[in-house]
């Protein structure tokens, strides 16, 4: 049992990462990540929706028929996102001002539909919850990483306006590189493509090295 969960977590965080392995949700991953804060916010909001959507779909999995499963998922996710949008706007207005633009985008985040279809609709709610959480954190990590790199190269800052998202206690995260104005291209769309490309290549290099090391470790054992 714990083995399954460990696999789920590892899948979500690395092996089957939404952005770096599944290459899903690239639209928000590229559009939103002009700063680390934006990436983090979008990631957190998506994670919340992902977890709830996964659990909901998993609970309903037995009564959903294959013919209408996609519309059902979409209705569920869209309603969920709209509710989150309204709730944030009403009671977490400051946060909403930072994230508001992105929340509507979550509806079209194919990672959520993808998880509902590929995982939650055939797993128990507990596993669906873990999967949603792991995938969400993996997604958040990826977005934050892309955002941080683009922000650093593009505007010479790190986690700018993080205090608006996380509260004044987190203002220590905000770093500004003195004397560097940044390369604008990096916070424009081409920068997103370039950074994503380099990160994808990096992940493959790491995976290849790990595999090679695993193979090297396995060889003497069998010999």
């Amino acid at each position: 049992m714990s083995g399954t969960i460990r696999t789920l977590v590892r899948d979500g965080l690395w092996d089957n990462n939404v952005v770096f392995a599944q290459m899903l949700a690239l639209c928000p991953a590229m559009a939103v990540t002009t700063s680390g804060t934006n990436g983090l916010g979008m990631g957190l909001a998506s994670t919340a929706v992902l977890v709830v959507a996964n659990v909901l779909v998993s609970l309903l999995r037995h009564i959903i028929s294959p013919q209408v499963r996609i519309p059902v998922f979409i209705v569920l996710i869209a309603s969920l996102v709209t509710v989150v949008d309204m709730v944030l706007n009403a009671w977490l207005h400051e946060l909403y001002k930072v994230l508001g633009l992105f929340i509507a985008l979550i509806v079209v985040n194919c990672a959520i539909l993808g998880r509902a279809e590929a995982f939650a609709s055939r797993s128990n709610p507990w596993h669906a919850l873990i999967d949603g959480l792991a995938m969400g954190i993996g997604f958040t990590g990826a977005l934050t990483l892309i955002g941080l790199i683009r922000e650093f190269l593009g505007s010479g800052t790190l986690f700018a306006q993080a205090s608006q998202l996380l509260g004044p206690a987190f203002s220590f995260l905000e770093i500004r590189v003195a004397g560097y104005g940044g390369a604008l291209l990096m916070i424009l769309p081409p920068g997103a493509f370039a950074v994503l490309g380099f990160l994808l290549a990096g992940k493959r290099v790491i995976d290849a090295r790990r595999e090679a090391r695993a193979a090297a470790a396995a060889t003497p054992a069998t010999a």
Binding site: I64, V75, L76, S79, T82, V83, M86, V87, A90
Partner: peptide, 26 residues
């Protein structure tokens, strides 16, 4: 199929309606 999708739609719209009315003033 219509029953299921209808039920889900009902559920969704009802919850949206509730959320909208609850958050309007805020």
């Amino acid at each position: 199929q219509p029953l299921l999708l209808g039920a889900v739609a009902l559920l969704a719209s009802a919850s949206l309606a509730w959320a909208a009315s609850a958050t309007r003033d805020a």
